[in-house]
Simulated scan of single mutants.
Amino acid sequence: MAVLPILITGDPVLHGSASSVTVFDDSLRELVADMVETMHAAPGVGLAAPQVGFPLRLFVFHWVDDSDTEFSGVAVNPELWVSPPPVGELDEDEESEGCLSVPGERYPLHRSELAILRAVDLDQNPFEIRAEGWLARIFQHEYDHLDGVLYVDRLEHVHAKTAAKVIRKAGWGTPGLSWTPGVDDLEG
């Protein structure tokens, strides 16, 4: 296993649609193991294949809720259904999220409270997870990556404007930029 470099916003693979996984082999298993190691090293609660340079429809996740229930796994070729997102004022404490491809930044974003994730695992076994709260948020965030959407692309105007300034000031937004957890002094 290896910790992989994480692409920073601006790289084309982050901003395009990923392709379905069609080959389930040892190379895919190795990629997923490397993604899990990278996610933990970052540290993060999810990581999509495009974030490490592979335009494939898969993501890994690991999250422990307030009751110490652990949710972890890999979602290959996922489909996601969500409830309507809330409207109204953002709660910056409860609705802020970050992204390993926009390292060190956090902005509030409305996400749907409920989500249903359907996917297959590495053995091509189908599964379904009904999620709410933060797990639903994680699924929406990672699923967006598979369609070339970063959470900063969904921010409301005032936060979008701030994020754009931060990205520009950091010199991001161009192809080829990355950081490696445990090597570079960045975190998301």
Rank of each mutant, 00 (worst) to 15 (best):
A119R: 02
L47R: 06
F54T: 01
P55F: 10
G98P: 11
Y143Q: 09
R137A: 08
W172K: 04
R168I: 01
V60C: 09
W172V: 00
G73R: 05
V45W: 04
R57P: 00
S72N: 10
T180C: 02
R168D: 10
A163Q: 05
D184I: 01
I116W: 10
V87E: 14
D185Y: 03
D144I: 02
E95K: 06
T162V: 13
E94M: 14
P55Q: 06
V23C: 05
D147F: 07
L122Q: 12
S112F: 09
S17H: 10
G104E: 07
L150Y: 04
S96K: 11
M1W: 00
N125C: 05
W179H: 03
P85N: 00
E92P: 13
F61Q: 02
W81N: 14
D123S: 15
G173Q: 06
G188V: 13
I8G: 03
V13A: 04
D65P: 04
E105W: 12
P175E: 14
G53D: 09
D26E: 15
N125F: 10
V74G: 02
A48Q: 00
V82G: 09
A160T: 07
W172S: 03
L150R: 06
A48S: 13
S178I: 00
E132R: 15
H157G: 08
W172Y: 11
A131N: 08
L80W: 11
D184T: 01
L14F: 06
G133Q: 03
R106L: 09
S20W: 02
K169L: 09
A119T: 05
V64W: 02
T162A: 13
A131I: 08
E113I: 13
Y107N: 05
D68F: 05
P5L: 01
E132S: 13
T180K: 07
D34N: 15
I138H: 03
E37L: 14
S17G: 11
V102H: 00
V13R: 12
L150T: 06
E70I: 13
E187R: 11
T162S: 07
V45K: 01
E132K: 13
N125Y: 07
V102A: 05
S178H: 09
A49R: 07
D123A: 14
W81M: 15
P85R: 11
D121M: 04
I167D: 02
V149K: 01
W81S: 15
W81T: 14
E142W: 04
H62A: 15
D68S: 08
S83P: 00
R118N: 08
P86N: 11
Y151N: 03
S20T: 02
R29S: 11
A115V: 10
K169A: 08
R29F: 01
D153R: 05
E79N: 10
E92G: 06
S96F: 14
P5A: 03
M39W: 11
H145C: 12
E95M: 12
L146Y: 01
A41H: 02
H15E: 14
F127D: 05
A2M: 00
V149S: 03
V152D: 02
H62N: 12
Q51E: 14
D11W: 11
